[in-house]
């Protein structure tokens, strides 16, 4: 589904990603963990070209997205993203947030977009909120709307960048539950998270980043019980 070869990204003199090789299979759920500043967000953002890689190649579904002259918007249609701070459009209602991109980008009719939007809201448990404005919602509700909004484009891959980090503890669960059901439905997912319990339970693989390098790529059991590298051991000691 996704193949990444020798991915480098630098901001000016700062090398943030230093040559990452990995791949993600269809339907696989990958958790990306690592210390703050290790390049997790940057890695994720390269996958939908919110950041332009400095060097290296990325393929999504056998199509190289890092070639010159690629239609970036087309790539992004197929790769949904959920942000730490939700980034809902404050001037649009919940349903308005969800139907905007499908109508604008895919040109589907308002009626169809609304029908699909309501189904998605049902799925994330917010059917009653369709006419609310985002600022009337709790953090957990906002994030579930944001997930529905991304899914409305029918992406084949979903990226999550610390989707529960900005939430009050009591709201983390409801968002993780939605993500888990999405994983169970077979969605390909890459999740940057600090929720180690969730990573262990839901992820098929753990990618551990440190200092811009992919240090470990292992199954959750392996990673959490017998991490190979010293840095992963230190990291786990701190967070667990």
């Amino acid at each position: 589904m996704i193949k990444i070869e020798n991915l480098h990204k630098s901001f000016g003199k700062l090398d943030v990603l230093k040559g990452i090789h990995t791949s993600i299979k269809e339907g696989e759920v990958v958790a990306i963990i690592g210390p703050s500043g290790s390049g997790k967000s940057t890695f994720l953002r390269c996958l939908n070209l919110l950041e332009t890689p400095t060097k290296g190649q990325i393929w999504i579904k056998d199509k190289e997205i890092t070639t010159k002259g690629i239609d970036i918007s087309k790539v992004r249609e197929n790769v949904g993203m959920v942000f730490q701070h939700f980034n809902l459009f404050p001037h649009k209602t919940v349903l308005g947030n969800i139907i905007y991109a499908p109508m604008k980008v895919k040109g589907i009719s308002k009626a169809d977009a609304e029908k699909q939007g309501r189904e998605l809201l049902e799925m994330v448990g917010l059917a009653a909120k369709e006419n609310q404005y985002p600022n009337k919602l709790s953090g957990g509700q906002k994030q579930r709307v944001a997930i529905a909004r991304a899914l409305a484009m029918k992406p084949e891959v979903m990226l999550f960048d610390e989707p529960t980090s900005a939430l009050d503890p009591e709201m983390v669960k409801e968002v993780l539950a939605v993500m888990k059901s999405l994983a169970d439905s077979g969605m390909t997912m890459a999740i940057v998270t600090h929720e180690m319990g969730f990573a262990r339970e839901v992820a098929d693989r753990i990618l551990f980043l440190d200092g811009g390098n992919l240090i470990e790529d292992a199954s959750p059991e392996e990673f959490f019980s017998t991490p190979k590298s010293q840095r992963a051991q230190d990291f786990l000691e701190k967070v667990l």
């Binding site: 919110l50 918007s73 992004r76 905007y100 991109a101 991304a150």
Partner: peptide
């Protein structure tokens, strides 16, 4: 306007 707004729109494939 919060930078995240443009990113969210672009991440949805909106030009």
């Amino acid at each position: 306007v919060d930078k995240g707004q443009m990113e969210a729109a672009q991440a949805l494939g909106v030009p």
